[in-house]
Structure formats: structure tokens, C-alpha cells
Design a binder for these strands. Sequence first.
DNA 1: TTGTACGCGTTATCAA
DNA 2: TTGATAACGCGTACAA
Lengths: 338, 338
Amino acid sequence: MPLTLKDIAKIAGVAESTVSRAINNKPGVGEETRKKILKIVEEYNFQPNKLAQGLAKKQTHILALLLPDLSNPNYPTIIKSIEEVANENGYQVVLCNTDNNPEKEKGYLELVERNQVDGAIVVGGELADRHILNLALNKNASLVLVNRLCEELTIPTVLVDSARGAYLATEHLIDQGISEIALIMGLDREFLESEKLEGYKQALTDNGIELNEKLIVQTEGSREAGYRAFLELMKKGVTPGGFFATSDLLAAGLVEAIKMGGYLIPEDFSVVGYGDSLVSSIITPPLTVVAEPLTRLGKLAARNLINLLNGKQPAEIIKVLNPSIKVRNSSTPHIKDK
Amino acid sequence: MPLTLKDIAKIAGVAESTVSRAINNKPGVGEETRKKILKIVEEYNFQPNKLAQGLAKKQTHILALLLPDLSNPNYPTIIKSIEEVANENGYQVVLCNTDNNPEKEKGYLELVERNQVDGAIVVGGELADRHILNLALNKNASLVLVNRLCEELTIPTVLVDSARGAYLATEHLIDQGISEIALIMGLDREFLESEKLEGYKQALTDNGIELNEKLIVQTEGSREAGYRAFLELMKKGVTPGGFFATSDLLAAGLVEAIKMGGYLIPEDFSVVGYGDSLVSSIITPPLTVVAEPLTRLGKLAARNLINLLNGKQPAEIIKVLNPSIKVRNSSTPHIKDK
DNA sequence: TTGTACGCGTTATCAA
DNA sequence: TTGATAACGCGTACAA
């Protein structure tokens, strides 16, 4: 059983409140006594119990970061930027893996609901969730959403315009002279995926290309799914000139399948991925991708949350960032050839 | 301000203790009153304050998992297996990114030190750390180490015999008829890396090959470092027949550099990596790697910690698991050629 | 079965 | 400048 403030007080021969003031650098303690107390604190390596502190102060200085999938190679960048801002402001960050499981997500949201953390940043995942909304409204919990949208727009949100990202990707392929473009996407019950579908369609429309439903494969977001998607398309007998895969992993699987089939990228098929991660850059050939401003995304989210904790609402409830396209070798046969 | 137990008691017209018993399924409450109370709890969506609970019960049912580097593609597997065991036993898991930064690590260890979590699993990272040890001894905090060793052997530890892994990798290359084997490794102040160096040396010795210090490059564990390592070796004028890179990222960079130099794998250079992750399998060609039993590792660690929390010491303080080698195309020219 | 009262370890208020 | 004491929200002996 660790030492308590009371023990220290007894040892120093002063009252508990005096010790409390001393270790919290609060005024109202004589220079002499403060030194004496701090020395004892040091000597016994006393650490105040955070639970008790939190109970009394109603603050823990911990933020939770809820992530739907830890194997997403884009997340480390977001995480780091959030931690950076948090640490600068005296907050620790704990990560919570929700596995896209509503139950787990709810469990972790209870951390904020029940005062174990001061606030939470929820990244990605399924569409709108009543639970999150109720939480934010009823308990006025401090929440910030990243790349996720909630029905009513009352929770501060930072997101990347993924429809625009998909538009850029599709347009880029069209610019290469390709008109039959397959879309390999995740399930559209995820907000971001449905957005990408819209962007894809819009790019086709704007370029006078008719939508061919056969070219769209909707599946889960794994590498295996990407692999199977290619086989499925081949079986259907459709032969696109290019592919747009809406995630790193889908693209990775897709590329494997293409190569396994004996085809060349980009000579036989152009491929564009989504997400400028390690994965897309070590694939052979390096993938042209839609790149998101992940660091900016994370920093904005963290700042929003910290502002919220200080009672400040963000200027814009919903902040939309623009993705860009990063051209590499998987989509540009002509540039390489000449 | 959320409802408290007192509020519920007032609404139900009973004492606080009765409410407490009711929501905790403790005996000593009339069936009638229990129902009434639970209905009110439901209706008002009352959630007990975990800080107060923790303070009173000295338990939070949260475990911390400290990781040195989130971008390590092997970790998701470990994390999932730990979470699985934890959840089955009624614990939540929060992840803490220490970034291999002792300060941050210390900060997160304070979570257990100061009762915000019940225990912690510390994965990998630098060699022995006084702080961890003191924590475990003085505060008898519940700690378990994974792939990390602490000076005195008093903390339950699960680790993979990485010396053996390196031995297997080196031997495999030797079996391919290669005698000049370069070692691209991380800094040997990390326990696991120094172990790998030993395994490498042992394999050479056992096969009557003399150690050539020039073939060893020690660097940080990043992809860029792997890339530079190859260039450095070339500059030195040494021409190994094969490479053993001690991490996924090092291997990824190394492979890039080799290909960028116009060489073929495995025709010109054989490459063996460490870690059976997504990265090593999507590289072209797929990498022969040392594979660790990550799921087993995680589950054992989690069980150890939970046992510890229940007052049971593990049967073996140090449990060593064996890695295996997974042969793919990067190291077997002859198998492919014939 | 139910209620009272105290403890958990801190902070904050008010006197002294 | 200090010290006593009441919160904070919950669990739990003990008494009723």
C-alpha cells in the first residue's frame, strides 16, 4: 500500500492541506515548510493517487483516442500528431481499439462518460451512432470526431473530403486515357466509403463517361478482399483499364492478384490507391495514391478537443480538409515510357 | 453534471447503500426494491462514476498496454490477442504509445502506479530499466514484460528467443550456399537486437564461417535506415550474397535500395527479414522471414497479468517461445529456378 | 431486508 | 501562513 498524502503530512508534522498546497505549487505555504515538504515527498517518492485527484478535481488530464482498426497503416501518423498536441498541453493519450465493434466502442466511450478520461477523439468507423450523440448531448461529454459524421451536426468534427479524393483519383485515371475504371471499395455503410463512391460517380459524369455498375466491387476493407475483388471482376468478364481501390489494404491485395494473374502494372492495368502509407509506397510498383493531410487532421482534432475542455467551441463545427493526389508509377505508363 | 448514486437513492426513496447493492447484484435487497431501483437506473441512464468506484474498490478493470512504436506492423496481432484474453476476463485495454521515449514510458507507467489502471503489459523497447523494476518491487504494481528483459528477473516475462530466430535466418542463408551474409540490425542497446546479433554470430561459428565485422550495419530501425544500410555496404566495397535484416521496416528499405540499384532478388542477393507482417508479404518478392508466435505471446502475457492481479504468480517467471522460419521467394533462387 | 456511517485519497473552503 | 473539515461518488461493515 503506497503512501498517502496523510502519511506525508504526519511525517512532515503539518496538515494534509498544507502538503496538498505544497505539491501543487499553490500559494499560501511558507517557503520553509514548502521546501521541507517537497524534500520528504522526494525522499519517499510520493505520488498522489490520481483517482482521488480526479474525483476531487473532476479532471484526469487523459484523453482517449478511439480507433476502429489498428492495422490501418495511416493511423500512426494521426496518432502521433494528436499525441504531440496533447502532450504540449499537459494531457496524456490512451488509445482504444474498437475493432469497428459497436459494443467495444461503447465500452470505451464509457471511459469519458464515467470520468476516467476528460474527453475523447473518435476516428472513422461506421455511420452515425446514436450513442455518441446522446453522450455528447446528455452528459455534455467532450467529444471530437475525425473522419466520421454524426447525424445531427453538433459535435466538432474534422474530416477529409474523401469524395473529392475519389474524384481526383478517378479523374487522374481518366486523364491517362482510361475510361473503364473499376472501383474496389469498402462497405458503404461506412460514411467515408459512401462518400468515395459519390466522388467516383461524379468524376465519371463530369467526363461524360457512363456508369457501369459491373465495375464496382463493394467488399470488406481487407487485403484478401482486394485480391478476391480482382478475380471476381475477371470472372464477370469485365476488363477495366484502371482500378481505384479505396484503401491501402484493398490496393495491396488487388495488386497481388493482378501480378499473380501475370499482368503488368501500369502497362496492363493502372492502379490508384487511397492513403499515402508505408504500404502503398513499398508495393511494386509504388502506388499512385490519394494522400490525406493526416498530421493536420490530427492536430486540428486535438486542438478542438482541448479547446472544448477549456470551454471554447471551435469556430467551425465541421472542418473539411482537402486531399491531394500523389502520382507514382502505378498509374503512369506514358510518363515512364517516354 | 451527471446523476450520482445519491440522486438515484433519493428518487427511489431508499438508501444509497441499497442502490449500490442493487446495481452490483449483491445479495441483501428485496426483489421488489431491486426491480424498482434497476428500472430507475435504466430510465435515467445512470452510470456509476468509475473514479469513485476505483477509489473505493481499488480496482478499475483496465489494463494498460505500453508499446514502443505503433508503426510496427507486428503489433496489431499482439494487441488483438491481448485484448481478447482481457475482454474475456472483464478487463478493458488501453494502448499507450511510448515512442521509445523513457519519459513517456514513465508517464504511462504512472497510470498503474497511481491506480488509474490495474496493471500493465510492457512490450519491447530499450534494455533494462530501473524505473520499471522499482515500480514492480516498491509499489508491488502488477506488471508483465513482453519481448523485453529486466535486470533482475522478478517480473513475469514472455519473450521470443530472437537469438534463435536470427540463428535460423542466418543458417537458412548458409543453407542456400551463401557464406557472405550481411546483417542489417537495429541498435544493440535494445535487448532483442543484441540477441539477434548473438544468434547471427553463433550460426556463422557453427558453420565454420569467420565473422566479418564489415558486413554488420547497426542503425535505427526505420525503412530509410534500411535503404541507407545497403548503400553504405556498397560504398565499403563489400558484396555479400545475402542479407538478414532484423525488422520489417529495415528489410523494406533494404529491398528498395537493392532494386533501385538494379539488382534482382533473389538472383543477385538473397534477403531474409524478421517478422511475418503485412509488410514483408506484400514486398516484391515476398520475403522469407523469421516468424514469431505473436498470438501466443500476447495471450500468455495477458493471462500472466490477470493471474497476477488475482494473486497468482506464473509458473515460470520467464517464458521463452520459439520462432520459426517462413520461406518465401526472397531467399530461394534454386527452388524457383528449377 | 434496509439504513447509517465511515473510509478510499485528494482538493477546497473557511477559520484560526 | 496554517489547520481542521467538508466535499467528491461510491462500497461496505455494522446496526437496526
